[in-house]
Design a protein around this nucleic acid. Structure first.
Length: 329
DNA sequence: CCGATTTGACCCTG
DNA sequence: CAGGGTCAAATCGG
């Protein structure tokens, strides 16, 4: 374990060095990439050791984008698990059991007196799909991966037997489009670098302010986004069967993502924003400005934005981790 | 000012 | 009754 700690320290040192030299390295993408790669290697090594699942050399061989690819490993939840390849489940690929029970969504304002019984659904009432997606291995690992939709957090709860709280999200467009899609995000106990994301309900809004819900072509993407910005589309339950390699879509997403750090992490000893998938926005009109190195950095730090507080995020995040670790030990 | 997040309380389900 | 899911007031932040 000492070795692990020293590795982490080394990674942090490298990251700090990178931060300090950032102004100089900014004009030297090769060195920048090399530096990032080294940091990635160190933390990747730590992560791999912790997990004991992925070999270091395998990690080194993987592309960054590959690492963001959701790993679907939910053997213990056969009924709701499926492979979505980083895309939130849409009806086109949903074959889960649908158990309609009760009426509509609970979005209605409800009085809190006991005489009023608002319709409620248990978690297995709506069609429920669970996936596992890797958390960013570096940077702000508290941000769950983008899934192409904007979510608004409406609750967080400590779950019995889980070290990490569960975040509750609903679609940002719930009111606008009567979209009842929800998701729960929870970090795995045994693998803090993995989020278990449970989707419930379906998006009545096909739109997203972050990224497409299905991998589009880049032009589709821009057109789609442009359309979304100006029109309200009628509810469509099935997206077009666009088949674009995930890597392509991810590259689009990553290159444009402006991951919302979403004001999370304001208080220190709570897992605030553990599911910080808060609304993030995408920057349109930069379709052709894809820069591999910048993407690498974006991916690494998962800040996505060009803000220069990535390091702060990293270190604050690390400190939180260490604190948590201290408490555990 | 408005929308998002936080957070304690409420309430349903098992 | 315990635990999980949601509400909504307070708070935050752009």
């Amino acid at each position: 374990m000492d070795e692990m700690i020293s590795l982490i320290y080394r990674g942090c040192t490298l990251a700090r060095d990178l931060q300090l030299n950032l102004p100089n390295l900014a004009n030297q993408p090769i060195d920048l990439a090399r530096s990032c790669d080294e940091i990635a290697r160190v933390f990747g090594s730590v992560r791999d050791r912790l997990n004991g699942t992925i070999l270091l050399h395998e990690f080194q061989q993987q592309e960054w984008l590959r690492q963001l690819q959701p790993r679907v490993v939910v053997p213990e939840d056969p009924k709701g698990t499926f492979d979505i390849h980083g895309v939130p489940p849409e009806s086109s690929r949903m074959e889960e059991v649908e158990q309609p029970r009760g009426g509509g969504e609970d979005a209605s304002g409800s009085s809190r007196n006991s005489s009023f019984q608002r319709p409620r659904r248990r978690k297995d009432d709506a069609n429920k799909r669970t996936i596992r997606v890797p958390a960013p291995r570096m940077g702000n690992t508290e941000i769950p991966p983008e899934d192409g939709h904007t979510w608004r957090k409406y609750g967080q709860k400590e779950i019995l037997g889980s070290r990490f709280p569960r975040g509750y999200y609903r679609c940002t467009h719930q009111k606008l489009y009567n979209c009842n899609a929800k998701k729960q995000v929870q970090r795995l106990d045994d693998d803090p670098f993995t989020f278990e994301v449970t989707y419930r309900g379906e998006h009545a809004c096909t739109i997203s302010s972050t990224a497409p819900s299905v991998p589009p072509t880049s032009t589709d993407f821009v057109q789609n986004m442009a359309q979304q910005a100006t029109t309200i589309q009628p509810p469509v339950s099935q997206g077009p069967p666009v088949s674009v390699p995930l890597g392509h879509w991810l590259s689009i997403d990553i290159s444009h993502r402006n991951a919302g750090v979403s004001g999370a992490g304001t208080s220190s000893n709570r897992m605030v924003g553990s599911g910080g998938a808060g609304p993030s926005t995408v920057q349109l009109g930069r379709e052709n400005e894809y820069q591999p190195v910048a993407d690498l950095a974006d991916t690494m730090f998962n800040s996505g934005s060009s803000s220069n507080n990535s390091m702060d995020i990293i270190f604050s995040s690390m400190e939180d981790k260490w604190e948590a670790g201290d408490k555990m030990n």
